[in-house]
Amino acid sequence: MKIRVRFEKTGPIRFVGHLDFMRTFQKILKKSGLHALYTAGFNPHILLSFADPLGVGEESTCEYADIEFAYRDNAALTEQELYRLTDLGIDNEALPDPPAEDAFLRALNEAAPDGVRFTSAVRVGLIKGSKAMALVRAASFLIPVADSFPCEAVNPDLLERFMLQDEIIVRKVTKKSEKDVDIRPEIREFRCMRPDEFPPFFEDDAYAKRSGLYLTCSAGSQGNLKPQTAVEALCAFGGIPCERNAYRLIRTGLYDAELRPLDADGTKF
């Protein structure tokens, strides 16, 4: 059975990069005592995939990972799904029942290190197209700004004028090329953070003003905007100097094409 878990990654562990975090995640699964499904062979590995890698230094309250477990899938399986299980040498009917959702989450949370907390788990279909990674179209971010960040940039008027532009051209520099791109279509929502949105886990003396930005932008394989690019463009628009280390990024949502959370189609198990 494939389960999509939602989890948080906050605090110092934000400095652990994606590849290292994947290793940590596998250790969490192993330590949890839950029965993940392993591939056969000399190097058995867990069938695990993440929705969207998080950058080093970024936090999140809403990450998703798909994990296959050796538990009976009690949903009506499609022919394709049955075929996939046979392929892995698995008889769905012979597998044990999954634990209840709360027991499942407790097992994961007891095995998880500081800063990683699992908040929900749903059953998703087994077929390829439904991978969390393939569904992602947008992400939202809370962007608390340090007291050293220019306060003129966290200004509703400036943001409104910024968003009223027809196009927002930024210079995109890669290792191979350098070109101008219009990022306006990638920005869905860009506004000031409401005071009640300030993340409760976020305690840092340098952020005493408790203010910041809120951004929803394109994410995933079909078009991706780095939130830093949006912040830089905003500062450039306002003629304000912008320092990368004067704000933090907290991802608060990952959405599909209809801007629904990635576990919207999941079912209870």
Binding site: G11, P12, F15, V56, P113
Partner: peptide
């Protein structure tokens, strides 16, 4: 490079 070298907090 690799700031996680300096954070401690490991399990």
């Amino acid at each position: 490079e690799k700031p996680a070298r300096y954070i401690g907090n490991e399990p």
